[in-house]
């Protein structure tokens, strides 16, 4: 079942179109920065953007900061909202369930497919932005003639070696994947409630917008630690020295809670739901 869903994911052109759109934003920003050489004022604009002009190796981190707030969650919400509701709207859900496949397994397969998409999308952004960054903003050659990215300065001012940068970027990929689990779970649950994929995606996005507004509101401080978007930017803490694990741990735990609860709700709703389309 999981193999079928993964094959379906990577056979569909929309997967590559969405990944291409995610890669396009950092590329466009890089082209503007490289041609005008006007970075955002220090401390403003996307994270790390003010530093990339002198160091292209940091551009993958800047690219992730660009796609995380809007494009990536919108992509995940659209795909997750379509997971079950899309099948129902297209009239294929009934035929899908005729096969000797449990509904719980179907939900799990849909979730695994979504996680695979998020990983694929983030790694694609990472690779393309690294190539863009080193091509447009520079790299340095070692004595051995090997071209390596220049050492990167962490937020704390300490130099990060290429190896250190590599593990931090990999950790960021893992953290962002986990961060998108909450969005996927919300949209997947709504997808089992309605036959409208658009409605499910819009519902998930509405939850995220409300969460983002409340995160910035001091009056909502009491509920802030439980909002799904509260720790989204905690991946930036990988680039402090020493790494600040506090928010990263809390963010990962919170996403797991959202996943367990909403996947449970999707399971409770979907396994006994009348499927008529």
């Amino acid at each position: 079942m999981i193999r079928v869903e993964l094959a379906k994911l990577f056979r569909r052109p929309r997967t590559y179109v969405i990944a291409g759109l995610l890669c396009a934003l950092p590329f466009i920003v890089a082209v503007f920065l490289a041609t005008t050489r006007i970075p955002p004022p220090p401390g403003q604009g996307g994270a790390f953007l003010s530093a990339v002009l002198s160091n292209g190796a940091l551009y993958p981190a800047a690219a992730l900061a660009l796609v995380l707030p809007v494009l990536l969650p919108v992509s995940v919400a659209v795909l997750a909202g379509d997971a079950v509701a899309g099948e129902a709207a297209a009239g294929t859900l009934r035929y899908l369930l005729i096969r000797p496949v449990g509904r719980t397994r179907l939900l799990v397969a849909k979730l695994v497919s979504l996680i695979a998409f998020v990983l694929f999308a983030i790694v694609t952004v990472l690779v393309t932005s690294y190539l863009t960054g080193t091509a447009l903003f520079g790299a340095q050659a070692t004595d051995a003639g090997v071209t390596l990215p220049a050492d990167v300065t962490s937020l704390s001012g300490v130099t990060i070696t290429p190896a250190g940068l590599a593990w931090r970027l990999l950790a960021t990929v893992g953290y962002l994947t986990i961060s998108m689990l909450g969005v996927a779970a919300i949209a997947l649950f709504l997808s089992t409630v309605t036959d409208s994929a658009l409605g499910a995606a819009m519902g998930a996005l509405a939850v995220l917008v409300v969460s983002q507004v409340l995160v910035t509101l001091d009056a909502a401080a009491a509920v802030r630690p439980y909002l799904p978007t509260r720790y989204w930017l905690a991946w930036i803490d990988f680039f402090r020295e020493p790494v600040l694990w506090r928010d990263i741990e809390r963010g990962a735990a919170l996403q797991v809670v959202y996943l367990v609860v909403l996947l449970g709700a999707a399971w409770a709703n979907f396994t006994t739901r009348d499927v008529t389309t």
Partner: peptide, 29 residues
């Protein structure tokens, strides 16, 4: 003592007889 911001950091290091201030936004030590 480090003061943390979203995507920024200001560090203050006290050593015997001297201090170092690091400001990531200004890229200045």
């Amino acid at each position: 003592v480090d003061v943390l911001g979203p995507g920024t950091e200001r560090g203050l290091y006290q050593l015997p007889g001297e201090q170092y201030r690091w400001d990531y936004a200004e890229s200045q030590l």
